[in-house]
Design a protein around this nucleic acid. Structure first.
Lengths: 135, 135
DNA sequence: ACTAAAAATGCAACAGTGTTGCAAGTAAGT
DNA sequence: ACTTACTTGCAACACTGTTGCATTTTTAGT
């Protein structure tokens, strides 16, 4: 689904910055930091960008994939709603390029994690991303 | 080992704020946020507190246990050095009291994680801490 | 205990993140 | 096209984290 369709599907108004943010995240291999988003979307006020990221997060269209030293990285959600998030993946911070990537985890690991009596379980790690060290 | 001994062991100078930070973290059940530390250590300049947290982290005496919305939580390390960190535990952010606790993870989960080709693997989650919901 | 060198501290200043209130502008249904 | 509710841009603010520099403290050697 394209960004406009996604917004309609989530009952959100179709505005320029929302489409721009969703497009930027859709086109990116990994997650994007707030700083990079702001750079790419200079035509919008930074307050608006913050509020857009909040709105899209609250409704389950995007999620904060990673946070380190006050830098937040955002990625598009797949299979999330405003009711439940489905983030059974690992967020990898690349030691080479600094990018953040979402990595699928094994079924076994998912089962292990599912046994824990907690919610919003999040795994992050550092290493080489697929761009910097192709398989 | 007490805080002064720990500092000597790591070849760090024994200063008031370092002892105060280590004592505060040692006496706390869970991790403490920068804001709380600053509150408890008002007699010191906040720049000094930041630099102290950096120094203690760099040398493996403490670690940043959790970070969310720009809030950093610090905890004492056990069995870490400036060479290698041993953080095979989960950082639980309590949904009730807001505190952050370090939780031991199962051997099976440790093995699963050890198989991943990444470093500095970190798991965080939300739920009820042991104080808010005793076992 | 004294001294000198090295390290740590406090202060001022700064850049960045994230938030709020409010007036003006825009989207969407009728 | 009109109306209402939502969204945006702007100004202002609080907090986090960092740097440079003068001053103070720690430590090791005498």
């Amino acid at each position: 689904m394209n960004s406009e369709g996604t917004l309609r599907h989530f009952n959100l108004r179709k505005t320029k910055i929302r489409i721009a943010v969703l497009d930027a995240l859709a086109q990116s291999v990994g997650a994007l930091s707030y700083a990079v988003l702001q750079e790419r979307l200079i035509e919008f006020d930074r307050t608006t960008l913050y509020r857009t990221l909040l709105t899209l997060s609250d409704h389950g269209l995007i999620h904060k994939a990673y946070e380190e030293n006050g830098e937040s990285y955002y990625a598009r959600c797949f299979g999330c709603s405003d009711q439940a998030h489905n983030h059974e993946h690992l967020h990898l911070k690349c030691s080479s390029c600094g990018g953040v990537e979402c990595i699928e985890i094994s079924e076994q690991l998912k089962r292990n994690l599912a046994q824990l009596p907690f919610q919003e379980i999040n795994i992050s790690a550092k290493g080489s991303c697929s761009t910097c060290e192709p398989v």
